[in-house]
Design a binder for these strands. Structure first.
Lengths: 125, 125
DNA sequence: GACACCTGTCAAAGAAACCTGACACATGTC
DNA sequence: GACATGTGTCAGGTTTCTTTGACAGGTGTC
């Protein structure tokens, strides 16, 4: 949808991510809890409550962090039914790959939307 | 100073950054203004006041952001004397390189110091 | 001296991120 | 029904980040 071209299978390739995308990924990863969640998930998929117990944090909090990670496209969640009929939300890592170099960041920065706080406004002439 | 082994010239190589280091880099880069600063600096070194005018932000703010970037090892500042004797602080990009993949993040997360907030307290029994 | 430029810092306001406890809803077992 | 498991959300307080304006200092020129 923007900038780059490379599009491998269902995997986001690192070639020239849009500024907004990179920004979302970086701010999502720039948090100790979220990094730890990635680590926990790297050992296999798991559902929220179990994950919460494993990492030792409240469910509401975990839920919110997972949401942030999912919004950045780093993890994927899917609601499934267990054998007993209980609904469980399983999360797993999405295969991502980003390269951080001065030029890569600079390049992405130029495509930053900046403040999309400009809800409406911008048509004078 | 930690984990990895690779050590090229005077450049921080991406092999296995410590959790704390990666965290600092990611949170430093996860900010639109800071990304834009990197972009501006990618076109050459510059001093604070000029940079502030170019990007369009207050000096105190820029100063603070540059400090954050420098603390993460992404830019370098050096106070120099201009011909006229004026003191100018020039900043320039440091050559960094980090690879972001699920495993790389997970690996780094395991070496997280987390809360060094344990100032004092912890001795009941 | 008054003005231009540069450097740095501080305090207080504002915004955004974070975290917690309580609540809602399901299901299956004793 | 009472209890365990799972899901989700919301209000509110706390903490951290961001931003601004005012101030300190320095230099050199008119």
């Amino acid at each position: 949808m923007s900038g780059a071209a490379v599009t491998v299978e269902g995997m986001s390739k690192a070639s020239a991510p849009s500024g907004d995308e990179l920004l979302k990924v970086l701010s999502a990863l720039g948090n100790p809890h979220r990094m730890r969640i990635i680590a926990a998930l790297s050992e296999g998929r798991n559902y929220v409550s179990a994950l919460a117990r494993e990492i030792g944090m409240g469910r509401p909090l975990l839920h919110m962090h997972l949401q942030r990670l999912e919004a950045a496209g780093l993890v994927t969640g899917s609601l499934e039914l267990s054998e007993s009929g209980k609904a469980m939300k399983y999360f797993e890592l999405s295969p991502f790959s980003y390269v951080l170099t001065p030029d890569a960041v600079a390049e992405a920065a130029r495509t930053l939307t900046e403040d999309e706080k400009t809800t409406v406004k911008e048509s004078a002439s």
